[in-house]
């Protein structure tokens, strides 16, 4: 891709301005693959910021993507709240027992200070070190779980649904605590050098709650939180559906929406209508078995449906490429973007 005229940052900013850059930006959101590169277990890999810095730099060079992704794992946030993290040999770490076992505990819950958390400090060190290496040439994407989605890890999804529907006072109290935490966490990442924050909000997806509930809950939380985050944000549905609320998500002030492989990218593009950019929507689960030809076909289809006029970043649909996706597939995706992603997209009807 050496004959391209833009660096990754220019390419990304151009598309986010709803203009066509030199090529479709590719965000290969690889996290666990860094452990493979360094020959470390996933637990060992995430135990030191230097490992993740080295891993991310190697992955950037190897797969030729357009961003750095210093995301560790989702439960790192509940770890900061005192929760347990369970490491797997071949997948993202899980949250252990919820920190909220009884809803009454919400009344006494206190949010941790980001500055006092050792696990979050590792992420901030990673971002600072990456920023020192790439400056403004490559976007560094920080991650914050939305205050509205964090309770799935804090108390379990089942209890959280009941809280949403049946205990509005405690729900609002938990949101206030989480909003303060998420804002501080996102702003700390931006201060450390992150270019933007990916705001993971799968509970808001219409896969999980109906639109009318989203408008009263997740959307209000997002409006309050995003307005206090000192930088651009991308709202990610983590594979969940978002077509039915795309305009509602745009109203929260986010710049980008991460969209699902379960929905048609052409319909999403039409619904986005230039108000938000789209990030997605390659199927990371199917990707494990793609041949080179299938990778190329999937990339071509996504570009054909979503990339005209900019406002589009090609990525997987979940926000993390599974550990099981082999190198050959990731290389094939990059090659296909290089071949078919160059603007103007003359080959698209």
């Amino acid at each position: 891709m050496s004959d391209l005229t833009m660096n990754s940052m220019q390419r990304t900013l151009t598309t986010l301005g709803h203009q066509e850059p030199d090529r479709v930006p590719l965000f290969l959101l690889t996290t666990l693959h860094g452990a493979k590169e360094l020959g470390l277990s996933i637990e060992e890999y995430f135990s030191k910021s230097e490992n993740v810095v080295e891993g991310q730099m190697r992955l950037l060079k190897k797969y030729r993507g357009d961003c750095l992704y210093p995301f560790y794992y989702a439960p790192i946030e509940t770890e900061a709240w005192g929760g347990e993290v369970i490491y797997l040999p071949d997948g993202p770490p899980n949250t252990g027992n919820p920190i909220i076992q009884q809803v009454a505990q919400i009344d006494r819950l206190e949010a941790p200070r980001v500055s006092e958390s050792a696990c979050l400090a590792r992420v901030l060190e990673t971002i600072s070190a990456l920023k020192a290496k790439v400056g403004d040439s490559v976007p560094i994407i920080g991650v914050a779980i939305s205050p509205f989605s964090l309770p799935v890890m804090q108390m379990g999804f089942e209890d959280y649904i009941q809280l949403m529907y049946e205990d509005r006072r405690r729900f609002e109290h938990l949101m206030a605590l989480n909003e303060a935490f998420t804002t501080e966490w996102a702003n700390a990442q931006l201060a450390a050098g992150a270019t933007a924050i990916c705001y993971f909000d799968p509970v808001s997806s219409t896969t999980n709650i109906p639109r009318e509930l989203y408008l009263k809950t997740g959307q209000q939380v997002a409006k309050r939180t995003l307005s206090r985050i000192n930088g651009p944000t991308a709202t990610h549905m983590a594979s969940g559906r978002g077509l039915g609320i795309l305009q509602d998500i745009a109203e929260t002030g986010t710049a980008v929406v991460g969209v699902s492989a379960l929905e048609d990218l052409a319909e999403l593009k039409q619904a986005a209508n230039g108000r938000v950019s789209l990030l997605g929507n390659l199927n990371g689960i199917e990707m494990r078995h793609w041949t080179g030809q299938q990778a190329e076909e999937n990339v071509k289809q996504a570009i054909r449906k979503g990339a005209r006029g900019g406002g589009f970043i090609l990525a997987d649909n979940h926000g993390e490429i599974p550990w099981q996706v082999p190198d050959e597939v990731l290389h094939a995706i990059t090659d296909a973007v290089d071949c078919w992603g160059r603007y103007p997209l003359d080959w698209v009807d």
Binding site: E158, I161, Y165, T206, T207, L213, G244
Partner: peptide, 14 residues
């Protein structure tokens, strides 16, 4: 209806 995308998981659960 959930599979088709017209109802949400929270509604199925409840």
């Amino acid at each position: 209806q959930w599979q088709e995308g017209s109802l949400a998981l929270s509604q199925i659960y409840m």
